[in-house]
């Protein structure tokens, strides 16, 4: 033991700040939230053990929970494929070897850096306001734009557009993936009389599948966790008519508006299970459509 300590003590000394952070800021809150999800806790009084009551209420009586799930699923199902398709299209354009490609890359990546910020959400609110830039442009061309943000039919779509606009990060990953596809496969396909569409579906997509899969999982998790845009644009409430009641917005309200920390913790664990389930499904289906070059047998 002494020998072990003598040998490894310096490593543990250097690791200590990280270990303290990890246990205090990650492991402890995770375990605490799991415990709290089985309690009623309003921050002021000590937590009261209620067993599965929070989960039971959530699934049996809480229509806003189901509404928030519906909003979040719609957002994930529409925004993730749209963002990936857009990102791939732009990556393919940039892969053509156009001039000043570095500038375009930086320009397209910019929204991804700004995307999660409050400032962009506020900007988005200004753009899609009834008297905002979008409607001003529509009016200039003789049209009349709707109330994008206060009409429940449109509000979620503005957030989906915001999500798709932040295509920079998957685009960069796609670009790297496209660059890794050997050029001679396209040349062989060219000689084999494959047109551009055939080349895309017979070569690009299958060889890019690991990258598509990676982006899909990453973007799906991001989309499930999406918060700041919906929070800012809906004024924190999920309005209008709960059309922007993202799961995370609902969770935030339960925790910090109504101080139902136990219930909010339960919501958090349900979100974790949902994300884990979808990720597992993605991994399970990947064996049917993802080809890895170095895979054995």
């Amino acid at each position: 033991m002494q020998k072990f300590l003598r040998k490894n003590a310096p490593a543990y000394v250097f690791l200590t700040p990280w270990l303290v952070g990890f246990f205090l800021l990650s492991i402890f809150p995770i375990l605490a939230s799991l415990y709290l999800s089985f309690t009623q806790y309003d921050v002021v009084r000590p937590p009261q053990w209620v067993g599965l009551e929070n989960y039971q209420y959530m699934f049996e009586f809480d229509y806003r929970f189901w509404k928030s799930l519906q909003v979040t699923f719609t957002f994930v199902v529409v925004s993730v494929p749209a963002k990936l398709i857009f990102a791939l299209a732009v990556a393919m354009l940039l892969d053509k070897g156009i001039r000043a490609v570095g500038w375009y890359r930086a320009l397209f990546y910019l929204p991804s850096i700004l995307g999660g910020s409050i400032a962009v959400a506020i900007l988005w609110r200004q753009l899609f306001d009834y008297n905002g830039v979008i409607n001003s442009v529509l009016r200039f061309f003789g049209g009349d734009g709707p109330y994008w943000l206060s009409d429940p039919r449109y509000s979620l779509w503005t957030l989906i557009v915001l999500a798709v606009w932040q295509f920079g990060s998957p685009m960069l990953i796609f670009l790297a993936g496209l660059r890794a596809i050997p050029q001679d496969l396209y040349e062989a396909a060219e000689i084999d009389a494959a047109g551009p569409v055939r080349k895309f579906f017979a070569i690009t997509v299958p060889l890019l599948a690991p990258v598509i899969f990676f982006n899909l999982v990453l973007q799906m998790i991001e989309a499930f966790k999406s918060f700041s845009g919906a929070f800012i644009i809906s004024g924190g409430s999920g309005a209008p008519l709960d059309s922007l009641l993202f799961f995370t917005v609902y969770l935030f309200n339960e925790a910090f508006s109504y101080f139902r920390m136990g219930y909010a913790s339960a919501l958090g664990w349900v979100l974790l299970v949902i994300i884990a389930a979808f990720t597992a499904i993605a991994f399970w289906t990947s064996k049917y459509w993802v080809h890895y070059e170095n895979e054995r047998g």
């Binding site: 062989a188 000689i191 494959a194 080809h291 070059e293």
Partner: peptide
């Protein structure tokens, strides 16, 4: 275009479609 020249080519890297 290459596809209309009625020729075949064998590449150094084989260029087999890996999938």
């Amino acid at each position: 275009p290459a596809s209309q020249r009625n020729l075949s080519m064998v590449f150094q890297s084989y260029a087999l479609y890996p999938h």
